[in-house]
Design a protein around this nucleic acid. Sequence first.
DNA 1: ATGCGTGCAAATAGTTTGCATTCAC
DNA 2: GTGAATGCAAACTATTTGCACGCAT
Lengths: 161, 161
Amino acid sequence: MSDISTNFSERTVEYNKLLEDFKKLLKKNNLKFTIQREVILESLYNSNEHLTPESLHQVLQKKYSELNIGIATVYRTLSLLEDSKMVTSLSFGAQGKKYELGAKNHHDHLICTRCSKITEFVDEQIEARQHKIADELGFKMQDHSMQIYGICKECQEKENK
Amino acid sequence: MSDISTNFSERTVEYNKLLEDFKKLLKKNNLKFTIQREVILESLYNSNEHLTPESLHQVLQKKYSELNIGIATVYRTLSLLEDSKMVTSLSFGAQGKKYELGAKNHHDHLICTRCSKITEFVDEQIEARQHKIADELGFKMQDHSMQIYGICKECQEKENK
DNA sequence: ATGCGTGCAAATAGTTTGCATTCAC
DNA sequence: GTGAATGCAAACTATTTGCACGCAT
């Protein structure tokens, strides 16, 4: 298969590393490196937003229309990536799951209940406490997620008009 | 309507307060206090587990079979309770949403990725940091949720056999 | 008496699966 | 060449909605 990613203007050292990790992962499990899997990884990497399977599919339809990627492949690949910890899913509110690349450094989320905008943050103190709590309760911690819900600055301002 | 809750052996001062809050809430919004709404609140209150709409419906079918409560009513009531912040939902993994009564004091969750068991905990330090973070980022905080995923003690022991 | 709430069934949304074909290895 | 991956459509599951009737106010 031709490696189409050589054409990506967005290609970076970081992305290359990610791609290599993905290829290694696939090889290790006797899975195949397909162009669909590659463009899904790439689209997740180049998205600033948290994507739903649906919205990711739309992005792919537009950006790689010639591939005509099916929604089932999107679901299958997201599950694969999630199982292998390369992406993380976030579910909240009425809406379904949203996915993001886990390779970017860890962070938690502030979610606006008005406009659904997601703001990321990291707090070392919280990270540390989480580990401590899991230890104390005899849990072997694998992952965690934290969301703070509220009204963002912009929406607060809008409301005051 | 007759207030069937007078027959609940589980009835407590705490539950009474909750029920009053619920009635007040309904009145304020010109909504009606029905027996379905009451037994849903009661079943949430008397459950030690986090319930899915499905499992709550089963509980109701068994405990109040004569009412023959429809699943749609369960969904509608849970949404109502969630909107008014009386219950909180938790979604994770492949499974759907689980609900719990928010009136019980606040806590976060440790979720076992093997057996799905949920353990609750509270940590004042984390609570405090969350408020601080929201403030710093201009968010008007309404709520938050935090989950730590891992393998619980029991499942770790099982694995070592 | 009024109109909200209910159960039911149908509709919708989100996700998964079976299958024939294609493609990476 | 072989078996895994894909697209498609059908199947499923979870959730929502329309409607006629019942009940709380």
